[in-house]
Design a protein around this nucleic acid. Structure first.
Lengths: 186, 186
DNA sequence: GAGTGAGGTCAACAGGTGTTGACTTGGAAG
DNA sequence: CTTCCAAGTCAACACCTGTTGACCTCACTC
């Protein structure tokens, strides 16, 4: 029962770890089964054994069981303070979103997965604050955060990439409040 | 001098048109020389003749000679009204930015090209309004617009994709003003 | 009509890709 | 020790990619 040299779980885990790194850094197309296997110290065929095919491997690292903070009771003016730390965790170099985003720009399936997170998780979470038109407001908040993520973690825009989190939260605080509670413009 | 059936300029143009469509829709890696040539009604080798290689073809459609409106004299509260129409033109399905963005998420060269636009064109244009820390403010404005572009044109986020331009401008107006003129948060 | 050169095509190359199926190896159970 | 199955490897497949160089062909000039 106790296997050291031939440990399926360990192999699976190291394949997943390598896949996360490579899909995250290079996107879907430029990541090859062979290179993932090499980094995991494993034969390419083993990757297929465990994940059926390349899509299966990608799907395995794309499981987004994110946990958003409960915002009921949070003042809209402090939504940024509650959301941003989670956001930075999820979108940072080790978070699960970067590979998904890189794939989503050229892969409709990944794009839909990303959209699902917005509609199924973000919108409901924000609905406790944004009672009026939550979907519209959530989309605007999502777009703002998405933009920061792309600028900061994908493009590496100099002032944003180096800006400390506190300052960024300070900039975003009134913006999120605006999207969450201000009247719909006419 | 007058060539009808064998017209180099026409061939070049139809290759470029096909390349714009395919790079824009599918990104760099999933676009093949062969498929571009087929759509252009031309032999793949002709594409190489004119653009040397795939990178050359991509570079040819990535020439970003954008024209930003002169913002001197524009009130910060109206910056959104001046910028957004241009923005929608540039980022829309037929604009030059979508292919670049799709490539930029997995291709450092394209990412740098995108960054260049921000630093060389957007920052100076905004500097007439944002005198204090123009680079930081431009990056924030850029991130916001980038986010809207990704949400609207890449992911197709339902409320944003269908929202009419006027409403969107209404939402963004105070945000751009905030980034352009409000005090740097501490 | 012959010559010329740009415009355009053709078939092939070398390399990389995902994927497969037959094979080997290790460790625990009998 | 033998058996047995999961864990892992191997070599190959069929396909697609960017790219190349030799070749054809048309319109125009002399």
């Amino acid at each position: 029962m106790n296997r050291r040299t031939r440990d399926a779980d360990a192999s699976r885990a190291s394949i997943l770890a390598a896949a996360r790194v490579q899909f995250g850094e290079h996107g879907f197309e430029r990541t090859t089964i062979r290179s993932v296997a090499a980094q995991a110290g494993v034969d390419p065929a083993l990757v297929m054994r465990y994940f059926r095919n390349k899509d299966g491997l990608f799907a395995a690292i794309s499981r987004l069981d994110i946990v958003l903070p409960n915002l009921s009771g949070t003042a809209p003016s402090r939504a940024a303070d509650a959301l941003l730390p989670v956001f930075i965790d999820l979108w940072g170099p080790d978070g699960p979103f970067l590979p998904l985003l890189r794939a989503a720009t050229s892969n409709p399936v990944a794009a839909e997965a990303l959209l699902e997170v917005l509609t199924d998780q973000v919108t409901p979470a924000l609905a406790t604050i944004a009672v009026d038109r939550p979907a519209e407001r959530a989309a605007l908040v999502g777009a703002q955060l998405l933009g920061v993520a792309v600028a900061r973690y994908v493009l590496g825009t100099p002032p944003l990439a180096t800006m400390d989190d506190g300052t960024l939260i300070g900039w975003l605080r009134p913006v999120l409040e605006h999207y969450l509670v201000d009247d719909v413009p006419t």
